[in-house]
């Protein structure tokens, strides 16, 4: 059990938990700013950016992917504005069109390009490849203290850990301005706080989490984690500090339960094969939100 668990289940579990938490953290602020759909948008828009970055550099690496995603986001903003002005279309519709069109464009690009050598394909973009992120050098729990074995961990793990760490530290450091400008932007501006920059910072944090998570877990988890854990957490408490803590708990719970259910659930009910962990994690987060809607203590403020 020790060897199998450490080598096959521990890395995907940890990556899933880190990805879920990294997305849930900025998701709290997006939700309170009524910008939850920006998370959705980011996770769609980054796909063509990542593909183009790969086509140009031939690498699936963090920096070019991040730059590609940023360029795609910028292109999306310009396109939305152009459609809104030239087509006289309402902003919501303009956004919807641009995000789905860019995601579809990304899918087409992926199909046409030669990505056979790397983990980059349409299915991967949606579900990620959580189950395949195994740790072949692990021999058991002792490997956790063996530097040589640790060096062979799937690179997604340290990458995701770094992204979560950055998001967590930035959130902790700028907690007061984030809270103040989210609650009362006018008052925050009267204090001289750069509210535009703070809003942009939240979106950049979300984009960082989305790009880092995208590679490992796919866009389904990213979209679900931006919204479900924070929304469920909001129903548990009337304090932002506690809401953020609860959202991390729900994100972790979704990732662990989802992974376990995807791997063993179908076997328990007699099915022969397991299901996608990413899909199950997103489903569990939705079920947790549904449960919170029914039974959480602060359903009405």
């Amino acid at each position: 059990m020790g060897f199998e668990f450490v080598a096959l289940s521990l890395p995907p579990l940890v990556i899933g938990v880190l990805a879920a938490m990294a997305c849930a953290l900025p998701g709290n602020f997006l939700l309170l700013r009524r910008q939850a759909l920006i998370g959705d948008a980011i996770s769609h828009v980054v796909l063509p950016g990542i593909v183009v970055a790969f086509l140009i550099t031939g690498l699936v690496a963090a920096v070019p992917m991040m730059l590609g995603a940023a360029a795609a986001a910028l292109a999306a903003v310009v396109l939305i504005e152009a459609i809104r002005r030239l087509g006289n279309v309402e902003p919501g519709a303009a956004m919807g069109v641009v995000f789905t069109a860019m995601f579809a464009g990304g899918v087409l690009l992926l199909e046409q390009s030669d990505t056979s050598g790397v983990h980059l394909d349409v299915e991967h973009a949606l579900y990620g490849n959580l189950e395949s992120l195994i740790w072949l050098d692990a021999t058991g729990w002792a490997s956790l203290t063996d530097p040589q074995a640790l060096a062979a961990l799937p690179p997604e793990l340290p990458r995701m850990a770094l992204a979560f760490l950055v998001v967590a530290i930035v959130t902790a450091l700028f907690w007061r301005p984030l809270k103040l400008s989210t609650f009362d932007e006018g008052f925050a501006r009267s204090l001289g706080l750069p509210t535009g920059l703070i809003g942009l910072g939240i979106v950049v944090m979300a984009a960082l989490a989305a790009v880092a998570a995208f590679d490992a877990v796919g866009s389904i988890i990213v979209i679900a984690m931006f919204i479900c854990p924070p929304a469920a957490a909001r129903l548990m408490t009337n304090r932002l500090e506690h809401q953020v803590a609860w959202s991390l708990v729900f994100a972790t719970l979704s990732a662990v339960l989802g992974y376990v259910l995807a791997g063993y659930g179908p076997l328990w009910i007699g099915a022969a094969t397991s299901v996608s962990a990413a899909g199950m994690i997103a489903t569990v987060s939705g079920l947790l939100l549904a449960a919170a809607c029914l039974w959480a203590p602060h359903r009405t403020a």
């Binding site: 309170l32 009524r34 007061r176 301005p177 809270k179 103040l180 989210t182 609650f183 009362d184 006018g186 008052f187 204090l191 706080l193 909001r234 408490t237 009337n238 304090r239 932002l240 506690h242 809401q243 403020a301």
Partner: peptide, 20 residues
């Protein structure tokens, strides 16, 4: 101009006045 459903308490809001 603000959303009063924001998860915070009265004392917290007053403390925001001491941000500077």
């Amino acid at each position: 101009s603000v959303d009063w459903d924001f998860p915070t308490q009265v004392l917290d809001v007053v403390l925001m006045g001491m941000y500077r």
